[in-house]
Computed example of a mutant assay.
Amino acid sequence: MQSQIRKLHDKYHAELAKIKNLKELEALRVQYLSKKNGEITNLITQIPKLSIKAKKSIVPQLIALKKEVEETLANKKTELNSKKSQAYRDLTIPLPKAHSGHLHPTTQIIREMNGFFRYHGFSIGEGPEIEEVEYNFRRLNLPEGHPATDLQDSLYIHEPDILLRTQTSSIETRILSNNQPPLRIVAPGKCYRNETNSSTNASFFYQYQGFVVDKEVNIQHLKYMITKWFQFLWGEDVKIRFRYKYYPEVSPGLGQDIQCTFCKGKGCQICKYRGWIEMGGSGMIHYNTLKTCGINPEIYTGFAFGVGLDRMVMTKFGITDIRKLYGGQIVYK
C-alpha cells in the first residue's frame, strides 16, 4: 500500500498542476476526496484489513496525504478566485457614468452660448470685475457728469476712479483699446449695481456681452446674429421683436425682447403684464466709442449687444424668482 500512496501522491500533484478553473478543481476534489468513491477514501476503507504493524506505518501516511490534498485544493481555489477578481478590476473596462449632480443653470447657458458663438467665429473675452471708471464709463461715451452714470447707482470701491463693474461693456472697451479690427468677441461675466433685491432684480447678476468690429458692418448683421442666437436658445418658433432704444455707447440703439415664455404673451408677473420680456440692448457702436478706444470710425464700423443672463436662465428653466438662482436652494433640474 505504501507504493499505492506514493503513486497516488504523484498522480494528484500532476493533475493539480493542469487545473485552470474552479469547475475542474471541484472535479479533482470529488475524484480524490469523495466519501463514496474518492481514491483516497477507498484506501482509507482498506485500513481495517491491515495488520497492526502495517497500520502503524500506513495510517499516518494516509492522514498526511489527505491533509495535503485538502490544503493544496484550498490554496488552489484561493488562487483561482484571486485571478477571477483581478479580471473584474480591469481599469480599461468602461463603466456607466456616476451621477454627481449637475452644473448651475447659469453655467449651462454660458457654455451653450459660448459654443454657439465659437461656431460663428467669435472668441471668448474676459476682464476684471474691479474696474476703472475710464473703461466702465468714459470710453463708452459716458463723460463725467453724464446722467446715465448716476442712474446705474454704481458700487464704488475708491471714489471716483475704482468700482465694481456695472456692465460687461467694460470688457469691450478694454479689448477695443488694446486690439485692432477685425474683432469678434463675446464675454460672459458678473456685474454689480446698487439695486434692491426683488423677484426680477438683484445687486449681483450676470451679463453676456458681444461685439463685432470690421469694415462695412451694418445693423442687418446685428439683427441676423441676435435672431439666430435666440432661435438657438428657445427654438425656431421663438417670437422676437426689436425696439428703438437709447444707449449712450451705441447709435442707433435697439432693445430686443422675446414673447414671455410663462404666459405666452397674455401678461403675467414675470413680464410685468406686458407679454414680452426684455432680453437686453444692442446697437451700432457709437462713433465716439470707437474713436476713444483708438479705432478709426471712418474705416471701421461695428455692432454690440448685451443681455441679462439671469432673465435668460429664468425663462429657459421656468424659474419665477431671480433670488432663487443664487440662494443655495436646488429649485431647478
Rank of each mutant, 00 (worst) to 15 (best):
I219N: 13
S177R: 10
I162S: 05
A148D: 14
L222W: 07
V186N: 03
D153T: 15
I171R: 01
L163T: 01
P160G: 11
V213W: 08
I226Q: 04
N194P: 10
G210P: 01
K223P: 06
A187D: 01
Y156A: 04
F204G: 00
F211M: 01
Y208W: 14
L163V: 06
S199A: 13
D214N: 14
Q207A: 03
Q152H: 06
W229P: 01
S203P: 08
Y206P: 01
H146F: 08
F204I: 02
A148L: 06
N179K: 13
M225Q: 12
Q220P: 02
L155G: 00
V186A: 05
F205A: 03
E172S: 09
S199M: 12
W234I: 06
Q231R: 13
I226T: 04
S169L: 05
S170D: 05
G145R: 07
N201W: 14
H221T: 09
Q220C: 09
S203L: 04
E195R: 15
N194F: 09
R193M: 04
R193L: 02
P147C: 11
F205Y: 13
S177W: 10
E195F: 11
L164V: 13
C191P: 01
L176W: 12
G210A: 03
W229R: 02
H146W: 08
W229S: 01
H158W: 13
T196V: 09
T168N: 07
M225K: 06
I157T: 03
E195M: 15
P181S: 06
T196I: 13
Y208E: 00
S169C: 05
L155W: 08
D214W: 07
T168Y: 07
P147N: 11
M225E: 06
T168K: 05
C191Y: 00
T227A: 05
G189S: 05
G189A: 04
R165S: 05
W234L: 12
N178E: 10
Q220M: 12
L183S: 11
D161T: 13
P160W: 03
S169P: 06
L176Q: 08
A148T: 10
S170P: 00
L151T: 11
L176V: 07
E172R: 05
K190T: 13
P181R: 08
I185N: 02
E172V: 12
F204L: 02
A187V: 01
T168S: 01
L164E: 11
W234K: 05
T149W: 11
S170K: 00
